[in-house]
Simulated assay, not measured.
Amino acid sequence: MKLQGKHIYLRAIEPGDLDFLYELENNPELWEISGTAAPYSRHVLKQYLDNAHRDIFEVKQLRLCICDLNHKLLGLIDIFDFDPKNSRAGVGLVVSDPASRNHGYGREALELVIDYAFYTLNMRQLYAHIGEQNAQSIHLFTKLGFEKAGLLEDWTRYGKDFRNVLLFQKLNR
């Protein structure tokens, strides 16, 4: 299966992506959605990249780079909590550059990952945790067939407050 759409393609993360990953993982504006609580060092991220080639069945996750057709790195899409026994996994994505948002790149990346998960990995379902206030992500996931399956009250801390998270599922029917 080729992970390429009309405007983007997905590729494995590579050692040359260290600077991009460093900026992304250390952006406090994204920490709420990634669950990060502290900055990552270049050393730790380099170790991660050194092991990123490992098989999804071994490490239970897969991180792919979202690139435009001119090879510009736009963001990341992850399959995580990969559970082959129960045939499910989580999915999350970020288009890092605000100027690249709202151009359909996230939608196309999510479509490619759904196809990959359902038809290559033979997954029964994908799920996503989305902050209740994240209207753009809720719109994207519901547009692609994810259904709201639950509410996790006060699930994430944001400063001194707690925020609700919505659970979305897409079944491979």
Rank of each mutant, 00 (worst) to 15 (best):
A99V: 11
G75A: 01
G106F: 01
A99T: 15
N102I: 08
V95F: 09
G104D: 03
G92R: 09
K72Y: 06
Y119F: 14
A89H: 02
F82Y: 11
I79E: 05
K85F: 13
L126R: 03
G92Q: 06
D83A: 07
S87A: 09
P98H: 07
T120R: 15
A109H: 15
R101S: 10
A99N: 14
Y105T: 02
Y105A: 01
G131L: 13
P98L: 05
T120M: 15
I114Q: 05
L126D: 00
Y119N: 14
Q136M: 10
L74C: 12
D83H: 03
S87E: 04
L121I: 03
K85G: 15
L69Y: 04
E132R: 12
L76S: 12
V91H: 06
L121S: 04
V95K: 10
L112D: 06
G104Y: 05
G90V: 05
L110C: 11
I138C: 13
K85I: 15
S96I: 09
N86I: 15
Q133I: 11
R88W: 07
A135Y: 13
N86D: 12
N134D: 06
I138M: 07
C67V: 03
C67R: 08
A99M: 08
N102G: 14
S87Q: 09
R88M: 12
N86G: 14
R107Y: 10
V91T: 09
Q136C: 07
L112V: 00
G92L: 02
G92I: 00
Q125V: 07
K72E: 00
Y105P: 04
Q125S: 12
Y116Q: 07
D81T: 11
L110S: 13
E111Y: 11
G90S: 07
P98K: 09
L69E: 01
Y127A: 07
G104T: 04
S137K: 01
H71V: 14
I77C: 05
S100W: 05
N86R: 12
L121W: 06
F82P: 03
I77L: 00
L74F: 05
R124W: 08
L126S: 03
Y116P: 00
Q125T: 05
G92N: 08
F80M: 08
S96N: 10
A117S: 08
A99R: 14
E132V: 12
E111V: 10
I138S: 06
D115E: 15
E111H: 14
I130S: 01
P84C: 05
S100F: 09
G106R: 00
I77E: 00
G106S: 10
H129R: 11
